[in-house]
Design a protein around this nucleic acid. Structure first.
Lengths: 238, 238
DNA sequence: CGGGTGTTTGACCGTTGTCAAAGCGAGTGG
DNA sequence: CCACTCGCTTTGACAACGGTCAAACACCCG
C-alpha cells in the first residue's frame, strides 16, 4: 500500500500548519485510527492504563472517557499533571525514553485506541505528516504545562479553580459538549493536587464562587452561571 | 522522491536508544553542528533571543552562556519556566506552532548555534536519527516540567531552593564543572518566580541553609557544603 | 441498612507574602 | 579618586492566605 494523503503533504518540520488547531488535529488522528483499524481497549474507572517505569508499549488515543495523569517522587509525593479526554494522546512523554514517566488512571469507563510502538513507523509511512503531528502534539503539551505553571504560580486559590473550570469549559465546547454544564470526573483531592491546593481549599473556593452566583455546584456537577465574570476574575489583582 | 533510509533502521519511534542519555545526546548535536558549520550567534547579557508571538525562525542550541525562559499571560503575569545552559535546545516548544510560546533572555554573554527551520529537513536528511532526537528532547522537556511541577507543588520553600541547587549541581557536573561550587546567573526575583516564591523567601531560605552550614552564600556564589544532607532534606516531611 | 468514601464547614495555626528600610556592590560621572 | 546612583539583596515586623485538624454530613454501593 502506498502513502496515502491522510495528512497535508508538508516539506519541513515546521510544516505543522495542518494542525494549527489542536482540536482539529486530534480528529485527524481519529480519522487515521479508523482507517488503520487500530486496536481498541476499554479501561474501567480506576483502572491503570500504564504506570511510571513500565516499558513503553504504545501511545494511547483517548476515544472516550477521562484520564488522570500523575507523577511520583521517590519518597512518595504525588503530583497530578493533568486530565485528559477524548482526542488527547497518552504516553507522549515516554517517546525517546524506555518507559513511561507518568501514571495514567481512568476516571470513568473509557476507551483508548492503541498505537503500538512497533506500528508507529508503519503509521508514519502510511500517513505523511504523522511525525510532524506527533512533534506538534509534544510541543503543544509543553506549552500547556507552562501555561498551568503560570496559572498555579501566579493565581490565588479561587482564581486557580476558576482557571480550571474555564479550561474545562473550553475543552467541552471544542468537543461539542455544553461549555457551561461541567461534570467533574475527579475528586476534590485530585483537583486540589493538580492545582497545588488542599482539597478543603478547593471545596471552599467552589463554595465562595457559588455564593457569588458565578457558578452552581451540585456534587460533581458544576454550572457556569456567569462565564464573563469568571473570566474577568482572572485578570483582577489577586 | 521515494523514501530514503534517512533514519537509523529501527522498527519503531521508540528507536531512540541512541539518545538514552540526555547529556550525551546534546553533544551528539554539537558534533553535528560542527559538521554542518551552523551559523553562530552571540547574545549579550540581558538580550532577548526570541519573544512570544514572534514567528519561529529557528531552534537554538546553547553553546555557551545561560538563558532564562519565561511565559506571560495576557494581563501581565509572568512565569519563569526554566533556565538553560550549554547543550540545551531553545525554541522546541514552538515546533508545530507558528510562533514561539516563550521568551528567551540571556543571563550572561552567550553563544547559540542557529538551526533555521528551513534547514531542519536538510539536517534530518544528513543526520539519521535527528527527528527521533528532537522527539526525545521534547519528551524530555515534558518530564522535566512535570518534575518541577511536582517539586513546586509538594515541597516547602526551603526544600524548593535545595531542589534547585541540587539540580543545578547535577547539570554542572554533567558539563564537567564543579558540582559544589555554583554561580547563580539569575536574580533572587527570577529564581523566586521560577520556584513560585517571593524573592524575600528565596533570600531567607538561602540564609537558613547557610546558617545550618549546609551551604555557603556569597552574593551569587553558592557552595554546597553538605550535599548529602541537602539531598536528605528533600525526603523528610515538610 | 450500614459502612465507606468523598464533601463540606468550622476553628485555629503557620508558612509565606507584603511592606518597609537599610545595606551592599558595581558602575558612572564629576 | 570619590561621591552618587541604581539595582539587587538582606533583614525585620506584621498580616493573611491557605494548610491542618476535627467533626458532621451526603451519597453510593454492597
Amino acid at each position: 500500500m502506498s502513502a496515502m494523503p491522510v495528512f497535508a503533504n508538508e516539506p519541513s518540520l515546521r510544516a505543522t500548519a495542518v494542525v494549527q488547531s489542536p482540536e482539529r488535529a486530534q480528529f485527524d488522528i481519529e480519522a487515521l485510527g479508523n482507517r488503520l483499524r487500530l486496536f481498541r481497549r476499554r479501561v474501567r474507572a480506576g483502572e491503570q492504563l500504564f504506570r511510571p517505569g513500565q516499558p513503553m508499549h504504545a501511545l494511547y488515543l483517548v476515544h472516550a472517557g477521562y484520564f488522570k495523569l500523575s507523577v511520583n517522587s521517590a519518597d512518595g509525593r504525588e503530583k497530578v499533571t493533568g486530565f485528559r479526554m477524548r482526542g488527547d494522546l497518552l504516553g507522549l512523554d515516554a517517546l525517546g525514553a524506555e518507559s513511561y514517566g507518568a501514571e495514567a488512571v481512568a476516571l470513568d469507563t473509557s476507551e483508548v485506541w492503541v498505537l503500538p510502538c512497533a506500528q508507529l513507523d508503519d503509521i508514519a509511512t502510511r500517513a505523511p505528516g504523522f511525525r510532524e503531528h506527533i512533534t506538534a502534539m509534544l510541543a503543544h503539551e509543553i506549552r500547556r504545562d507552562w501555561s498551568w505553571m503560570l496559572s498555579i504560580g501566579t493565581l490565588s486559590a479561587d482564581q486557580r479553580v476558576v482557571a480550571f473550570l474555564l479550561d474545562l469549559s473550553d475543552r467541552q465546547r471544542a468537543l461539542g459538549f455544553s461549555p457551561s454544564q461541567l461534570m467533574l470526573r475527579m475528586t476534590r483531592a485530585e483537583l486540589g493536587n493538580f492545582l497545588s491546593l488542599q482539597l478543603e481549599t478547593v471545596t471552599r473556593a467552589l463554595s465562595r464562587l457559588a455564593q457569588a452566583a458565578l457558578i452552581s455546584v451540585d456534587r460533581r456537577e458544576v454550572r457556569l452561571l456567569d462565564p464573563g465574570a469568571l473570566r474577568d476574575s482572572l485578570g483582577t489583582a489577586c
